[in-house]
Computed example of a mutant assay.
Amino acid sequence: MDMDKLKQWLDIAQSMHGNDFWKTIFDQDMAGFMDEQKREKPTDGENMSQGKKGDIFPPIDILENDKEVIILVEIPGVKKEDIELGLNGDSLLIKGVSMQFFSEFRKKYSERFYGEFKRSIKLPDEIKPEEIQAKFWNGILIVSYLKPPSYVQPINIE
C-alpha cells in the first residue's frame, strides 16, 4: 500500500470526525466484543431466538454422566404457564413468552430479551416424550432423562 495514500485517507478521516477520530476508533467497548467471540455457538440444526447483539435466548447448559442427561434452560421472569416444551425426534423444542416488566416506564437501557422465543436443542440421544422429566424452579427449566442403554445388535456374517 502506498504510504502517501494512507496518510491522505487518515487526514480526510480525521477532518471529517474532528480531533476525536482516534478516540472514537479506540474507545469502543472491546470487552463486549471479546465476550461475544468467546461465547459458545450453537451446534448445527439448532434454532434459537436472538436478543441484542446476537445473544442466544434462552441460554442453556447440557450436562451428562454415564446414566443421565440434564438440560438447564435459563428463563428468568417467565412463568411456567408461558412455556411450551415438546419433542421432535432427537430435538427438544422450547417455546414461550418473556414479558416486559414495568411497561409504563420508558426503556433507558436494557440487556434482557423480551418477546416470544423459540429454541430447538439437539439432544445427545433419541428418546420418547414419556422418558423426559421437566421441572421449573427459580427461573430455570430443568429437563432430564435417563440415557438409553447402549447395546450392539449382532449381525450374522455369511
Rank of each mutant, 00 (worst) to 15 (best):
G45L: 06
K41L: 12
Q133G: 06
L10D: 04
G77C: 03
D4N: 13
L63D: 06
D29Y: 11
E46N: 01
I75N: 02
D4I: 15
V78D: 03
N65F: 02
G96V: 10
A31D: 14
D11V: 08
N19W: 01
F117N: 09
L146N: 05
I132M: 12
L87W: 05
P59E: 08
K5C: 09
S15K: 15
P129A: 14
P154D: 11
K7T: 07
V143K: 02
D11R: 09
L87R: 10
M3T: 08
A31S: 14
D11T: 11
E116T: 12
S98I: 06
E74T: 10
F102I: 05
S15V: 07
D55V: 08
E40M: 10
N47I: 14
L87N: 08
I12C: 06
Q133Y: 02
E64Y: 03
S150C: 03
K147M: 00
V143F: 02
E131K: 07
I94Y: 07
I71G: 04
F57R: 02
S110F: 10
F117S: 03
I60R: 02
Y109T: 14
I142T: 11
G45M: 03
E116L: 04
V69Q: 01
L92G: 03
F21M: 09
D125G: 02
P149K: 12
K7D: 06
K95P: 01
P124G: 08
I121W: 00
K7F: 14
V97Y: 12
A134T: 08
L63T: 07
R119T: 03
F117V: 08
S144Y: 02
K38A: 13
I132T: 04
Y145I: 07
P154Q: 13
E130W: 09
S150D: 05
P149T: 09
N65H: 02
M48P: 00
I75L: 14
M48F: 13
L6W: 07
E36S: 15
W137Q: 13
S103E: 11
L93T: 10
G77M: 08
K41S: 09
F21S: 00
S110M: 15
P58C: 10
W22E: 01
G115A: 11
K135V: 04
I121L: 04
I132Y: 01
M30I: 15
H17F: 12
I157G: 04
Q14E: 15
I94N: 01
D35T: 11
I75D: 03
V143L: 01
P154S: 14
K108T: 15
K95I: 09
L92Y: 04
K122Q: 04
G45V: 02
M99H: 15
L87Y: 05
D20E: 09
I56D: 01
T24P: 02
Y114D: 11
W22V: 05
Y109I: 14
S98V: 08
I25E: 05
I71C: 09
P42G: 06
K41G: 00
D44H: 04
